[in-house]
Design a protein around this nucleic acid. Structure first.
Lengths: 300, 300
DNA sequence: AAAATGTTTTTTCACGATAAAAGACATTAT
DNA sequence: ATAATGTCTTTTATCGTGAAAAAACATTTT
């Protein structure tokens, strides 16, 4: 098995949802653009849709014959990227405890355990190394630095530096910049969420990421924008394992975001700075409280 | 050819230099620690030294029989890591012009051109991507973002943010911290270099890196420390292709460093900030003047 | 018994090979 | 003649494999 066809399966599943909406599908290039895959993959998808009697396909005509049934979809787990699979396994191990700082990481063992080739694990570890949680010893193993309090503090230090700067840049953006419309939309989504927070509180993390990414983009600095990947990754897993007072925390965060948005709209740099600081402070606090306060090994 | 033995060859060459100094070599573990390789490699080295009549080897006794001749050494180019080879080739292409922003990077083509496997090229590109010069399109090619003025400005923006913070942290370090001794040593080296700048100006870049790394380490933040890798990489190649007024530039930089060091020693945060800003400003200027002022593609 | 040497096992690094996916080129339909 | 479809080529993603290097274990020496 040299390469899984998850790209095809995922695009196929997304393609099935299109069938509900129309009586016939658009051209192959158009479908490709819609689903974000090449024509080659589109044709494989169409071939299967024809085979399973979902559509009648003859050259340009792609007539929908029936609505997709649940069993037409490929199982969710078959649509994941290998690197997603590896990341999840790796993070599970990391957060499952027993992952002490200083521990060695064994590529071969990881690969065997996850059931993938070593190359994929190696590539994952190289990509993952920029998050600052692991480090390579040349010609030898990787070392786990540990998800420690020190890590969280270093991470938030940079985050605060970057976001304060980005927020200031954002507020200074000209009236006619399209970001203001984006901000208005996000504000509306925040208001909606605030109203239904009791039931939809778990939708916050996705909104949170979109909001902060919009702000960081105002910095027009690739290093700042890219650094948000580190934050997003950490918070993604953080949200998964720290469910304590999730509703309350998110409710507070939504309110802080709204204040932050209002400050941005006021273009008053003092207000922006204050609102940003306030929100980042509580974000840091939330993160820190979720970290087991184990002994922190001194970094060498 | 599945793996070159460059680790062995490099360690062997370094091992030869030890022969000049003593009449007999230390134990295998000791040699391993000295050369930074495993015992396995040490034994391979000793075996060859015995074979070529450099030493007589019998268990613990490793008597030096003769001094190494130039032809005992492995050729320099055989001691390079694969990733070093790839990096050099890649940077040569990048700087040789014709590397316009937006250009596609082809793994297979690169691998063929350099004469290595695709895996190594892929891994290099993944590692290299954190420098912000290339970007991956999922399931497709890499895109060159270009060594543009925008890149240099984004890089220096972060550098300045990080270094100002690190310098302040440095100045606030307690009297008994070992970094002050390190700083004294570096100061001495700067003075020596300043005195002989006419002939030794090309030794500055190495000193420059050590000095700035010492300062960045005071931040105690892995993201700041790691970011210096980006700066070091860029300046490394920058020094290689921009030889205009090298002597003058380095002379100025040494003077600025000495002022910067004096400011740090004064522990006066205002002075530190001023000296740091002054130096960073001229470093940025030097970098910017060396970049061809081509049209800068807007980053999407 | 501590530290070295000798031997064996495991892991990392790098390659070539192969299926999936993208991309390029040729042909046909509007 | 433009845009789609049909076909062929190239590139990417991933694996298994094997040599280099590290690491672990066993034995000997001081």
């Amino acid at each position: 098995m040299s390469k899984s066809n998850n790209v095809y399966k995922d695009a196929y599943n997304r393609g099935l949802r299109l069938l509900d909406e129309t009586k016939s599908l658009p051209s192959e290039p158009e479908l490709g653009a819609l689903l974000g895959v090449s024509r080659t993959t589109i044709r494989t998808i169409l071939a299967r849709m024809e085979e399973t009697g979902l559509i009648a396909w003859n050259k340009r005509s792609k007539t929908v014959l029936r609505a997709p049934r649940p069993d037409d979809f490929f199982p969710e787990e078959e649509t994941d990227t290998l690197s997603q699979i590896i990341e999840r396994s790796f993070m599970r191990r990391l957060l499952a405890g027993g992952a002490e700082a200083g521990m060695q990481i064994n590529e071969l063992e990881l690969a065997r355990e996850i059931g993938v080739g070593t190359t994929s694990v190696r590539e994952f570890l190289i990509r993952f190394s920029r998050f600052g949680l692991i480090e390579k010893r040349r010609n030898s193993h990787w070392v786990l630095k540990g998800f420690t309090r020190a890590f969280a503090l270093e991470l938030t230090e940079i985050r605060e530096m970057f976001e304060l700067r980005s927020a200031a840049a954002f507020a200074a953006l000209p009236e006619d910049s399209p970001v203001w419309a984006n901000l208005d939309l996000l504000e509306e989504e925040h208001r909606l969420l605030a109203r239904e927070i009791a039931t939809r509180f778990n939708e916050f993390s996705e909104l949170d990421e979109r909001f902060h990414r919009l702000i960081h983009r105002a910095s027009h600095n690739r290093f700042i924008v890219d650094f948000y990947d580190v934050i997003a990754m950490i918070f993604h897993y953080h949200y998964q394992w720290n469910k304590a007072q999730e509703r309350e925390r998110n409710e507070v965060a939504v309110a802080e975001h709204l204040a932050y948005i209002a400050a941005l709209k006021s273009r008053d740099l003092g207000k922006v700075d204050a609102a940003c600081r306030k929100h980042l402070k509580s974000a840091r606090h939330t993160l820190l409280t979720s970290i087991p306060d184990r002994a922190v090994l001194p970094q060498q």
